Amino acid sequence: MSVADELFGIADVSAWIGLAPDTLRYFERQGVVPSPRRDSAGRRQYTTADVELIRMLVHLRGTGMPLADIAQFTGADDNVTDPARLRVELLTAHRRRVHDRREELDRALDVITRKIADFTDRMTSSVDLLDRPDCTIAFDVQGEGPLLFLVGAPAGRAGFAALAHELAGRFTVVTHDPRGIGASRAVPGMAAPTPEVLAEDLAALVDRFTGEPALFVGTSGGAVTLLELGKQHPDVVGRAVLHEPPLVSLLDDAALASRAAAAFKAAEADPQRAVQEFFDLSGAAHHTGPDQTPPAHMALPELAGEELDKNRYFLGRMAGPTVFYVPDIEAIRRVSVTLCAGSLSHHQMARRATQALAELLELPLVDMPGNHLGASAEPAEFAHVLRPLLEP
């Protein structure tokens, strides 16, 4: 008897597949899998093809395919005239569902990772304060070695907590909350958080530590802050790694610019709508390889009141001056800059903008782990690639 002709009992199949015999019988009764042949004593006898079909059922069920669709796929539904075509259609539709679900899980994972970093930071960090003429900047320090500033906008200390921990064995890592973010709370009369103002805040923080050039890593809006810092204070920038500065100003895309401006304008009155629009136009929470594009729209859940307030500030005051900032290319050439983008950020706004900046500066674009949020979502992998970029 060949392997293809070999027959197996239900106990064997149960052990191989990881489904209890009662579950196999249940799927048979429900018409999810065809009934196997029986021996003279009425015992089920499964062929190798039956076993492989049940293995596929387990994969489909584990990824959420409806049982009715599984029944059509396995051939338990007798009303199918073209099984091969139907299976392709069923798998294609299910692949779309799995992809959408993966996007949802990726977003949830990003949020969970940031919250872990946030609460860890609250438990382990002692906050220092830097007085500015119109506000107070909260910052903290950890590690030993060359001085390294991690800079974000709106990301602050919490957003960099995990990455700072990964780098603290090699560097003295300084993180801070930009004005209006986290413990650097907005106060009446505070100047707007433009890249120019944020760069002056950062220069004052650097001056608190050293008069020597330091190392910098900037992500998203923080990378834009560093572009302005290099223009205003090139003497303090020893080396700067810029990860995905979202410069819409560098993209020849009037429709994208118009959508971004409309989102920022709506932020004060309707931050939920503004967040949804900016999420869709940036594509920044998705994971897209070279041959993939982010979906045009994916509905976000209703945001909590605290998140709505944060985005009134971020999208209403900080994001506009950041994404429409026009970098001084000649000034940037005078400092040591490395440009990076997420290996899973293809065809997203920030990676496109960083590629445009790289072309203007005639610099290579270094791929980093993850997407736009790689520094917070994949801190260990991000740090591993980042360390050599900070070496002399």
Rank of each mutant, 00 (worst) to 15 (best):
D106E: 05
F27L: 15
S343Y: 02
P146W: 14
I17S: 02
L53M: 10
V13M: 05
H59V: 09
I137F: 04
K231H: 14
I332T: 07
L202H: 05
R107S: 07
V187M: 10
L215M: 08
R208E: 14
D309K: 15
L389I: 10
D235F: 13
L363C: 04
A260R: 11
A162H: 01
T47A: 10
G374V: 12
L205T: 08
L390H: 03
A186T: 04
K310H: 10
E381N: 04
E28G: 08
V224T: 13
V275P: 00
Q30L: 15
A285R: 08
P146D: 14
S35Q: 09
E212S: 15
V385L: 07
T293C: 07
T120F: 05
L373S: 06
A20F: 08
R114K: 11
I181E: 01
P388D: 12
R114Q: 11
R37N: 03
E144S: 13
A168K: 13
V88F: 05
V174Y: 05
R157P: 03
V111W: 12
G64K: 06
A203P: 01
A356P: 01
L53R: 04
A353K: 07
W16P: 00
L198I: 14
C135H: 14
P392G: 09
L247F: 05
A199L: 06
A284I: 07
A4K: 10
L60C: 01
H165N: 08
E212T: 12
G182H: 12
L344M: 08
T322V: 14
L167R: 12
A260V: 15
A214M: 11
L19Y: 08
D128H: 15
A49I: 06
A41K: 09
T225G: 01
G169S: 12
